[in-house]
Structure formats: C-alpha cells, structure tokens
Design a binder for these strands. Structure first.
Length: 357
DNA sequence: AAAGCGGGGTC
DNA sequence: GACCCAGCTTT
C-alpha cells in the first residue's frame, strides 16, 4: 500500500473487518468509556467483562457514582485489584460533577486532571467518545510499535517511552471520524494478533511492512523488562468470632496493600498478633493456628498465617468495647458480601465457611 | 528514574 | 514459575 500512512490505513481497514465490535463499553457515552478504561488498566478484558455490567448497573451515571459512599464503590471493585483505581474513580466522579458540571470534558488535558486518568486513558476517552485526535500508548501499542518498527529500546527507559509517544502521534489517521476504529484497532491488533507469545503474523495487516518480521526478530521484541525482586512478607490474620457467630473486621488504611478494603485484624509480626488477641480476652492457648497460605502480588509474596479464636460470652461486652475503640466491628457472616474484602481473605472465609459458621 | 500497587491468564 | 495485561501515582 503506497499511501503516506500505510500503518493507519491498514489498521482501520483491518479493525473494521476483523476487530472486536461487541464489547459492552464500545459506546459513545464518555462515562462508560472512562469506567471501562479504568477497569482495563493492567487488567484483561475477560476479567473486566465480569465486573463492568455489575458496576454500571449500580452506578449508571457519573452523578450516582459521585454520590455513593466509598465503601459501596470498593465493594463492587473487590477482587479486581489495584484498589487505588476504585478510590480515584470515586474521586474523579466527584471532580466531574463539581468542576465540570457533571459533563465529561473532551480535552485530553482536562481529562488528565481527573484522579486516576493519565495520558493514555485520557487519549482513549478522547478518541472513543469524542473522535479526538489523540493517541493511546498502552502495553499492546508498545508491543505493536516495537515490532513493526523493530525498536529495541528498553521499555523502562523514559526517553524510549517518550520516543514511542512521538511515534504513536505521528501515526494517527488524518480523519477524526476514523479515531475510534483506529484506536480500537491498536488494542485489537495487540490483543488478538500481535500477541506477546506466538503472534499470528500470517493474519497481521502489517505483515509485509513489519521490520521485526523482516529481520526475524519477532520473538525478541519488545525487550523484556527486568523483573522486580519479590520479597516475602509474613502476615498474620486474627479471625475472631463472638458468641453470636459474628466475625471481627476493620477498615484498612487508605494507602498500601488492599488500601480501603475491609479485613480481619492483620499484622506483620507475631507479637502484635498476640497483643491484639490479648486485648480481646484471648490467651494464646485459645488461638487455633491454621495452615499458612501464600498469595502473590506483583512485588510481594505474602505468607499468611490465620489464627482462629472464639470469644467467650462472659467477656463479650468488655472486649467489644475494646474492639470498637480500635475501629473494629462485628459482622454477621451472611453480611460479609457487603464488604470489599481482599481476594485471599474472601477465598479463605469461603473455604472455612462450614468449620467457622 | 524508580517504587508501589492485585489479581488473573498464559505458556 | 516467568511474564504480562486497555497504567497511574507517589517518592
């Protein structure tokens, strides 16, 4: 193809014929586009398909989301990970209502002032909802560009990243009306054809202009990131029941692992765990240590040891006062679903349901 | 520039 | 087990 921009011409044509057209967030409503883009940050499409409809049903507009309590937002986000996304989403909804009169702005720079919206997400909203001339640059796009143009820079290098932005901008189609299909095409090509492993080059619209293919370097591009060292972090859970069969929960601090979610009392050190139990009237002999479980995050390997205990009825009142002083409270097992719990805790409680409740 | 932040899929 | 995914924020 001898057009000035064979890349965008091919991509748009390919997307219209072979791309994805029935994803639930392929709509013009900027609220829907924004919500999907936030959910899709570092999260695969198949996972988001589970969460997106539930979320949209509960919060159909930016106004309903802005007016909701944070706990309800986090509860619908539980299990999706990267919980700062949910906190930022909630804040951003309030920003849209308070600073933009409840209407999403269409300028990329305005969108970037919203919490949790960086350049790529802002560009995606611009392109899909407003046909604006802005480029995304996510993992899919980086992979496609590194291969088609045989770029072997270090993906973690800021200067290389900047050059990818510039290249991506230079490839945009000239017609604004083409922006949605073009942007979707970037994502679709990376997700379904130019895959990380075993790319389907025989189906690729770029096959005959792809430099990596020409140089037989598909497998080595893009360059791998250096893996972060994963440290092991011991954690101890105190799973305490009172005579009513309720379980003790607390809200986690806003920052850090599982920020803003609800959890059983959780400690990094054993003596802190015993000290907390003691305040609740539980001596160490009455703590039932359970087999440890591991849970892997990107940067940590959690080794979690659950301790289960029962509070005697004679002491319940006094120890409940102690609990509420520490911002802890009792929850009936059937109401646990109302709280955003870390995935491993939700899994553990489900598995121990019969023994505990 | 580097670190922090989950959970799941794939091979 | 290694690597990555429709990245952003904080330090």
């Amino acid at each position: 193809m001898n057009t000035p921009n064979p890349f965008s011409e091919r991509l748009i044509r390919w997307q219209k014929q072979y791309g994805r057209h029935h994803l639930p967030w392929q709509v013009k409503n900027p609220y829907c586009v924004w919500l999907s883009e936030i959910m899709l940050q570092q999260t695969q499409v198949a996972t988001v398909l589970d969460y997106y409809p539930r979320f949209l049903e509960k919060f159909p507009t930016v106004q309903t989301l802005a007016a909701a309590p944070q706990d309800e937002v986090l509860s619908l986000w539980a299990g999706l990970g990267y919980y700062s996304r949910a906190r930022n989403l909630h804040k951003a909804a309030q920003q849209v209502v308070e600073q933009f009169g409840g209407t999403f702005p269409s300028e990329r720079k305005d969108l970037e002032t919203l919490c949790g919206v960086g350049r790529s997400t802002a560009a995606a909203i611009c392109a899909f909802a407003f046909n604006r001339h802005e480029t995304i640059l996510d993992g899919n796009v980086k992979r496609v560009l590194c291969r088609v143009f045989a770029l072997d820079g270090n993906p973690q290098d800021k200067k290389f990243e900047n050059s990818l932005w510039t290249l991506a901008e230079s490839l945009l189609p000239s017609e604004n009306a083409d922006m949605p299909a073009y942007t979707q095409g970037l994502m679709d090509l990376g997700a379904t054809v130019c895959k990380r492993t075993k790319p389907l080059c025989h189906q690729c619209p770029m096959a005959d202009i792809c430099e990596a293919k020409k140089q037989n370097r598909i497998a080595e591009l893009p360059r791998k990131k250096t893996a972060p060292e994963v440290q092991t972090l011991p954690l101890y859970w105190l799973i305490v029941r009172n005579p009513d069969g309720e379980i003790l929960l607390e809200k986690r601090p806003a920052k850090g692992i599982w920020g803003g979610l609800y959890c059983v009392p959780c400690f990094e050190k054993l003596d802190e765990t015993y000290a907390c139990a003691e305040k609740l009237g539980i001596v160490s002999d009455d703590l039932s240590e359970q087999p440890a479980l591991t849970h892997r995050l990107t940067h940590r390997l959690l080794m979690i040891t659950p301790f289960e205990a029962q509070i005697s009825s004679s002491d319940t009142l006094r120890h409940s006062e102690n609990a509420s002083k520490d911002n802890r409270f009792w929850v009936k097992p059937e109401n646990l679903a109302d709280y955003g719990l870390p995935k491993p805790l939700a899994d553990y409680l489900k598995q121990r349901q019969q023994a505990l409740f």
